[in-house]
Design a protein around this nucleic acid. Structure first.
Length: 195
DNA sequence: CGACCGATTGACT
DNA sequence: GTCAATCGGTCGG
């Protein structure tokens, strides 16, 4: 499977968001290899988007969004959760795509352990069917903020593209501003899409 | 400096 | 369906 080049991220954010569906998020650390197929994303368009963390300009928290495309923006929220975004837009343009759900492909045992769900009986969908859940499953936290996705630690690999007819679109979830924008994309019918 | 609140989740009525 | 958990970011005084 081929790692996506930086040029993949140097395109319009809504296009990158749509095309991230079906791609594979990979994390390597030591001997562990984790992989998941992205099935749900949301786009956040910086200065044009009241729902974006970057709407009111650059701060210490969101500075990675203003940096070069192809980096990972990880933020901490609700006092206990991390969420991961792929940064798009050139340096100075604060746009990003939130990864909201994935279908686990590799390293399910590790993901289970990271999620604190050791029992084999639990529903595997519960591992990665939400933005904070997949971060926990992948062990993504504050120290992973600004990781270059063109490096070796965390990256996105090519995957079978999702046919246009299988891509659903809706308003974004969990926001109070910018709800009129239909910038959430997901793979229709996929079991891991969040609710 | 104090107060409010969030790109969520999971437990509970 | 409702709501607490839990704390850093952000904004007003």
């Amino acid at each position: 499977m081929k790692k996506l080049p930086r040029s993949f991220y140097s395109r319009p954010t809504l296009l990158v968001a749509k095309e991230l569906l079906g791609k594979i998020l990979v994390r390597k650390s030591g001997k562990t290899f984790l992989a998941g197929r992205i099935v749900e994303v949301e786009a956040y368009l910086g200065s044009k988007d009241p729902a974006s963390h970057a709407y009111r300009g650059k701060t210490k928290r969101n500075e990675v969004m203003f940096g070069p495309e192809g980096h990972l923006y990880v933020y901490f929220t609700y006092g206990m959760h991390y969420c991961a975004n792929v940064v798009t837009g050139k340096e100075g343009v604060a746009e990003a795509v939130l990864i909201r759900a994935m279908e686990p492909l590799d390293g399910v045992g590790v993901m289970r352990k990271n999620r604190g769900l050791a029992k084999d009986s639990i529903d595997p969908r519960n591992l990665t069917n939400g933005p904070a859940k997949l971060c926990e499953a992948f062990g993504i936290r504050g120290s992973d903020d600004d990781t270059d996705l063109c490096g070796e630690r965390i990256y996105v690999a090519d995957g079978a593209s999702v046919p246009h007819s299988s891509i659903g679109r809706s308003a974004r979830i969990g926001i109070t501003k910018g709800t009129e924008k239909k910038w959430r994309y997901f793979v229709k019918g996929n079991e891991w899409v969040s609710k």
